[in-house]
Design a protein around this nucleic acid. Structure first.
Length: 886
DNA sequence: ATAATCACG
DNA sequence: ACGTACGTGATTATT
């Protein structure tokens, strides 16, 4: 006997609506780049995946309600009246639901005058029960009337993933009814959501009782005379007509004149191309990366065009051309330590593949890498250069970086996975690393080397193809200069800084470690004593219980999961119990101990005693760098206790010094330039103390010496607020004043600096028009929420629109300075080396005798990196450690 | 994997 | 009325 077919029938209209409300608060979180809401699509997708993999149907259909009126309106025009209007955020998603279904390869159908129920009922009833098992999925209980021996009706309970499987047996157990009697129940009890009236004062409970006794609506009325006199009997008699009408309304038409038959519903599998298109349109990045195209292709015997390559075991000159792609594979993120597991390159004609141990020792290959005049296209230039260098090979002539270009084109594209980046640019021939190597602890090279080689060959090919495309895209968005003159050269400068690394005095850290350990034990003991018990001080949850329940301190702020025990809360409780001070002390030291002392010791390289951070150049939305493994951009400085950590950062040679230069007020200077505000420019041109100057204007003070410390402090907060995209609330929190007072400050500020006000208005308007904002050097940030109807999202996007050109232009400026600095150090033949960048400062190490040179050269270069309408100002310091360079 | 906290510009 | 300052990364606890 052949296997039975399985027909899956989905009530599209009902499920879509359920999907829309499935995830609480999802409306705000699911919006694509064009501002389209996607929450219903997301949940519908999840339901489809669940059902398809659970049921593995041979036939499938999604049925929709057609239009507003149905045959039911012909005999009851109030049918479905009184429904509240469907939200626009829901409606806008419906057209795209069709695209999703096309991607899943699932047919959909709707029929004039009929509802989805009727389509489903007709198909479920008409198929031969010997040939088909049927599963119906809906959010509407009415459909349970369709349950039969071969028909199961799945009704969503909560969201769209939890379902109740209704079989005749289940219905009998739960209600004591046959599927047909579900219709009678609606006849008596009605259904308010469909505006089916039923009988007055009869609900589900009473209807069940009546049906258990009389079997059906007809049965009830046949026996109505025998009922004893009651209000209910009266209602039944009065509403008799209504009861039969309701039953008729609730009856699913199983003979709808369908134009489709079950033979049209054979499931043929996903259309991966369409699905990818859909995911991209909706910004469903996780689905996109999870889409295992390789496994899928194999299963469906779709063969991707095989990429041809040659495995090199003996190098020949013709393998190396004047231009080509180069790719070096490593399986972990940290390229300072990762093993190279494969090397591939192209010569314009062929793709070559080689085992690293062999090829990296070949002189011909080394020469090719080193030759500046040979053009190389890569994916992640910095990663490539650093790794190669570790294996003794110098790489020159990199003229394109696909990863970096993709990030410049859209800062939202910050994936590190080549296949994801490729898909973002409509190239689908590369499998994800996850599908080839696995993930987590199980990450490994495929057993069959051919699999690895094919994967790498695809990457090489992708680099060739994408380099061309992205180059054109950069021209179109006027970002070629940004890419070729700033980002790509900078990546080489950063590579050098990372490889140089920073010397760490591990002994100093070990001293601190034992000192802090002692102090922590002391404080810990005091805390336990004051609490009257021991507990985990590091657990905000346990700490919350001790403070706010056991000790009865007032809870000032709450987090999603319980009491907040953050610093600003504890500071307010200081006076009320001595334990609070101890906890703050403990926190401060524990943080330094775990993150900085122990954390840093963990990442010092044994051989050199240095740390080698990685600057992530393709991550931030503003153009800043970030630093990982270790993060050297957040080493403590504000509190003396933590600042001492900097004593452990020392020069790598005897007699050398640490030298640091930082921009003074670079963001406000950038603002002065781009806003063109007369007074702000004037303040900088005259070299005034900017916060005092702001204080004078905002508080209406005539003479600088009359500005009090408090005024300056408040003006400083206002200036920060301006840079961040000010809000009254934010400023009020920062200054501990009321929102009204904060708003007063802001109004006065804008009054005194009309150019700044104008800038803020213009930039937000521009962002709303174009959908993005730009920096001085055409770095772009797209703001998808800028026209959102959600106040919070829109406000956030507006503040971002104000802040990004400021923060981003400042980032541009220091990047220019770094490139120039690198050139100058080389040109002047200096031993001094650039080690670190911390957003607005550069840190070097240099022999003492070069310090006087640096004191002139570094500020000179940094201050003249760009020409603004106001001068840039740089302060420099040096000392025996980073701590002393203050 | 996520939330809370806290370090930096 | 809504309810948050902009940009990051590491550690710890907890699910």
């Amino acid at each position: 006997m052949t296997k039975k077919n399985k027909l899956l029938l989905i009530d599209g209209s009902s499920i879509a609506f359920r999907a829309f409300y499935a995830i609480p608060g999802s409306l705000d979180r699911f919006v694509n780049k064009n501002g389209l809401h996607t929450n219903a699509l997301f949940s519908f997708h999840r339901m489809l995946e669940n059902e398809m993999s659970k049921e593995e149907p041979t036939h499938v259909l999604v049925a929709f309600d057609a239009g507003k009126t149905t045959f039911r309106h012909e005999f009851y025009k109030e049918y479905k009246d009184g429904r509240s209007k469907t939200p626009g955020e829901f409606k806008e998603q419906m057209p795209y639901l069709r695209d999703l279904l096309v991607g899943f390869g699932i047919p959909h159908y709707e029929l004039d005058n009929y509802e989805a129920d009727d389509i489903i009922g007709t198909l479920a009833t008409q198929v031969d029960p010997n040939e088909y098992d049927v599963v119906v999925v809906s959010g509407d209980r009415d459909l349970t009337q369709l349950a039969k021996e071969n028909v199961r009706v799945d009704i969503t309970i909560k969201g769209v993933s939890e379902i109740e499987e209704n079989t005749p047996a289940y219905l009998m157990e739960k209600y004591g009814l046959t599927p047909n009697q579900i219709i009678d129940m609606k006849g008596l009890a009605g259904d308010s959501s469909d505006n089916i009236p039923g009988v007055t004062n009869i609900g589900e409970k009473t209807a069940l009782k009546l049906l258990h006794e009389f079997g059906s609506v007809e049965g009830v009325y046949e026996n109505i005379e025998d009922m004893k006199k009651s209000k209910r009997k009266e209602n039944l008699i009065n509403d008799k007509e209504q009861a039969f009408l309701s039953k008729r309304l609730a009856t699913i038409d199983v003979e709808a004149p369908l134009e489709v038959t079950v033979d049209d519903l054979v499931y043929k599998g996903k259309d991966v191309g369409k699905l990818i298109e859909f995911y991209k349109e909706m910004d469903f990045k996780s689905f996109l990366s999870k889409l295992d195209t390789k496994a899928y292709d194999e299963e469906n015997q779709i063969e991707k065009a095989e990429i041809l390559f040659e495995v090199v075991t003996e190098v020949k000159p013709e393998m190396f051309g004047k231009e080509g792609a180069l790719y070096v594979e490593m399986l972990s993120d940290n390229y300072h330590t990762a093993d190279i597991v494969g090397v591939t390159w192209t010569n314009g004609e062929k793709i070559y593949m080689a085992e690293p141990d062999f090829i990296l020792a070949e002189p011909l290959f080394a020469e090719w890498l080193k030759d500046e005049s040979i053009v190389k296209h890569v994916f992640d230039a910095k990663r490539t250069v650093v790794a190669m260098k570790r294996y003794g090979n110098e790489v020159n002539g990199i003229q394109f970086d696909v990863l970096l270009a993709s990030y410049i084109l859209n800062t939202n594209d910050n994936s590190k996975d080549l296949s994801e980046v490729a898909m973002e640019h409509d190239y689908y021939e590369v499998d994800s690393d996850e599908s080839v190597y696995g993930k987590g602890a199980k990450i490994a090279i495929p057993e069959d080397p051919a699999v690895l080689y094919q994967h790498l060959a695809r990457k090489a090919k992708a680099i060739e193809v994408l380099s061309k495309h992205l180059k054109t895209d950069l021209e179109k968005s006027e970002q070629s200069d940004l890419f070729f003159s700033m980002e790509l050269p900078l990546s080489m400068v950063l590579a050098k800084m990372e490889m140089t690394g920073v010397k760490v005095n591990a002994n100093r850290l070990l001293e601190m470690k034992s000192e802090f350990a002692t102090r922590l034990t002391e404080i810990e003991a005091r805390i336990y004593e004051e609490a009257g018990e021991t507990f985990n001080i590091n657990s905000p949850k346990q700490l919350g219980v001790i403070l706010f329940e056991k000790m009865g301190l007032p809870a000032i702020k709450k987090t999603k999961t319980g009491y907040s025990t953050a610093v600003d809360v504890l500071e307010q409780l200081r006076e009320q119990a001595p334990i609070v001070d101890d906890i703050l002390q403990y926190r401060q030291i524990a943080k330094i101990q775990s993150t900085y002392v122990e954390g840093l010791l963990k990442v010092v390289h044994n051989a050199t005693g240095k740390v080698h951070t990685r600057y992530v150049q393709t991550l931030t939305q503003t153009g800043r760098l970030s630093s990982v493994d270790p993060n050297l951009q957040n080493i403590p400085i504000r509190l003396e206790e933590g600042r001492k950590i900097r004593q452990a950062f020392v020069p790598s040679h005897e007699g050398w010094k640490m030298f640091a230069s930082d921009y003074s007020q670079i963001e406000l200077r950038v603002l002065a330039d781009i806003s063109n505000d007369t007074h702000l420019k004037e303040a900088f041109l005259e070299g005034q103390d900017i916060h005092s100057s702001t204080a004078m204007r905002v508080f209406g003070i005539e003479k600088a010496e009359d500005v009090t410390g408090n005024m300056r402090r408040q003006a400083k907060a206002v200036n920060f607020g301006i840079v961040y995209g000010i809000s009254d609330y934010g400023l009020s929190q920062n200054l501990g004043i009321t929102r009204k007072e904060a708003q007063q400050f802001i109004d006065t500020y804008f009054d005194k600096y009309p150019g700044v006000k104008q800038y803020m208005e213009d930039i937000v308007r521009e962002a709303k028009d174009k959908g993005y904002v730009e920096t001085l050097f055409h770095r772009r940030r797209y703001l998808k929420d800028i026209n959102s109807r959600n106040f919070n999202l829109r406000s956030f996007a507006e503040r971002t629109a104000m802040n990004t050109p400021i923060q981003g232009s400042a980032a541009d400026i220091i990047k220019v300075a770094m490139i120039e600095m690198d050139k100058r150090l080389k040109a002047e033949n200096l031993k001094a080396t650039m080690l670190l960048q911390v957003h607005d400062e550069l840190i070097f190490e240099a022999p003492m005798e070069e310090i006087p040179i640096l004191e002139k050269l570094v500020p000179e270069v940094m201050e003249h990196a760009v020409k603004l309408q106001v001068p840039l100002k740089v302060d420099s310091n040096y000392g025996d450690s980073w701590y002393d360079a203050k």
